[in-house]
Design a protein around this nucleic acid. Structure first.
Length: 437
RNA sequence: CGGAGCGUGGCGCAGUCUGGUAGCGCACUUGACUGGGGGUCAAGGGGUCGUAGGUUCAAAUCCUAUCGCUCCGACCA
């Protein structure tokens, strides 16, 4: 992609409305624009990142055995009256009336809808266990949206729902999701720690929040230092096997959000205790038969008996993750994308656009990078070198390839790694193999 | 929802107290110079001052209402 043609409206100055780093950088780097409070348009480069995050989430869900479907954003109020949540949910729910005066709503979550689908279609214990998920936009009419996409009113969420015939089955589903969350966040380049947390208005008895640590986090969290050294990707995961050991390992140490903070327990950790700010990027619940009972979703058991399936739900804030990743990965100059979610892997800078040698060398490197399978953003604009460097640092692509008259004369180009800032004068071939890494 | 603040060109702001017909920086356009960390000079284009009423000879400025946005608190993927 040529930057001279790409729709990337960057800002040199900070917009006043953006108070937190990720929000500021997302606006400045041309990823999003605010449409109204807590509602955003995703511009091409922001959308690329959002899609990559979504893909990583989707892939791990599929690997864990969850199956994707797609439920609507607009739901009938009737289902919510059945579950008893219509009145309970309060003003956060955006209520809509259609032309026939039917009460509708823009879904803040989908337990009712999935339970309705389930009860219409599943009859026998033989059909379980099932984990179904979708990645869909939600709306919660937050009193006070803030922090950009991290606390928007409209947000993209991956929500999974598990159905099992008994508690043991539900526990297995819970564990699958637990481990898949660890792996998902790790693949996104994040250190997420599962923490005990309040179950909230959604209900349930067993739940973990997945929190990433970042200075600008919204709440105070406390955990054992050793969690920072755990790496779930070091081990093979087979989702068909018993995952309880992995879950045990990740829940054995102390890790809580401020709601569950217990001074006595925390003090026992002594110097192993970390207290930090955290951003919630995932939340998993086991809630048993809460919805299956309320909505009469029953199946037949092996002995012909009526069974209310045991359920759980599992959410990942996909759009929030984009902000959270930036909170966890940036510097004074801009964003530092982890390779796994970067909108382009390489930013190619032609320092002297219009200079024949530089143009030729740039086009040559561009096609070589493309042939090697890289997504490249080529800054071919007629701008000063400084402006190009600043833009490239701001948008945070993992690699920068810099082509200028100085290097061309001496037969080298330059590569820079965005995260470390390391620069190297190097031949074209050496650069390629370095980036292929 | 309680408290506070802000709406003036795409962005950041001054002007409002003390009314006299809108200005600065960045961005944008054109030209020249320049050329490795957001350049210099020159010449330009763009704003019914959030909206609606009112006061006045005259309103960005004063009054009333209304909408939007931001921040602090309570709430939250």
């Amino acid at each position: 992609m040529r930057l001279s043609e790409y729709y990337l409206p960057t800002l040199k100055e900070d917009p006043t409305e953006a108070q937190v780093t990720s929000h500021r950088l997302m606006l400045r780097a041309g990823l999003i624009r605010q449409a109204s409070a807590g509602i955003y348009t995703w511009l091409p480069m922001g959308l690329r990142v959002l899609r990559r995050v979504e893909d990583i989430v989707r892939k791990e869900q599929d690997t864990a055995g969850a199956q994707e479907l797609l439920m609507p954003t607009i739901q009938s109020a009737d289902l919510w009256k059945e579950s008893g949540r219509y009145d309970g949910y309060g003003k956060e729910m955006l209520r809509i009336t259609d032309r026939h005066e039917r009460e509708m709503l823009y879904g803040p979550t989908n337990e009712e809808l999935i339970t309705d689908v389930f009860r219409q279609t599943v009859r026998s214990y033989r059909d379980l266990s099932k984990i179904l998920y979708h990645i869909q936009w939600k709306f919660r009419d937050e009193v006070r949206p803030r922090f950009g996409v991290m606390r928007g009113r409209e947000f993209l969420m991956k929500d999974s729902y598990s159905f099992d015939i008994d508690f043991e089955g539900a526990q297995r589903s819970y564990n699958k999701m637990f481990v898949s969350y660890l792996r998902t966040f790790a693949k996104l380049g994040l250190k997420a720690i599962p923490m005990q947390a309040d179950t909230g208005p959604i209900g349930g008895d067993l739940s973990h929040e997945f929190i990433i640590l970042a200075e600008t986090g919204e709440s105070e969290v406390y955990c054992h230092k050793d969690y920072l050294n755990y790496d779930v990707l070091m081990e093979e995961t087979n989702y068909n096997e018993d995952l309880s050991e992995t879950v045990k390992k990740w829940t054995a140490l102390y890790a809580v959000t401020d709601e569950k903070y217990d001074e006595k327990k925390a003090n026992q950790l002594k110097d192993k205790l970390i207290s930090a700010r955290g951003i919630e990027v995932g939340h998993i619940f086991y809630f048993g038969t809460k919805y299956s009972k309320a909505m009469e979703a029953t199946i037949t058991g092996p002995g012909g008996e009526v069974i209310y399936p045991e359920m759980g739900s599992y959410g990942i804030g996909v759009s929030r993750l984009v902000g959270a990743i930036i909170e966890a990965s940036h510097d004074e100059s801009g964003i530092i994308w982890p390779e796994s979610v970067a909108p382009f892997q390489v930013g190619l800078i032609n320092i002297r656009s219009g200079d024949t040698d530089c143009d030729n060398a740039s086009n040559d490197v561009l096609s070589k990078l493309k042939n090697a399978g890289f997504d490249v953003l080529f800054d071919d604009r007629d701008e000063r070198a400084g402006a190009k460097f600043a833009t490239m640092d701001l948008i945070g692509l993992p690699w920068q390839v810099i082509i200028g008259p100085r290097g061309i004369k001496n037969g080298y180009i330059e590569i820079k790694k965005r995260d470390t800032g390391e620069r190297e004068d190097i031949s074209v071939d050496a650069a390629l193999s370095k980036i292929c890494g």
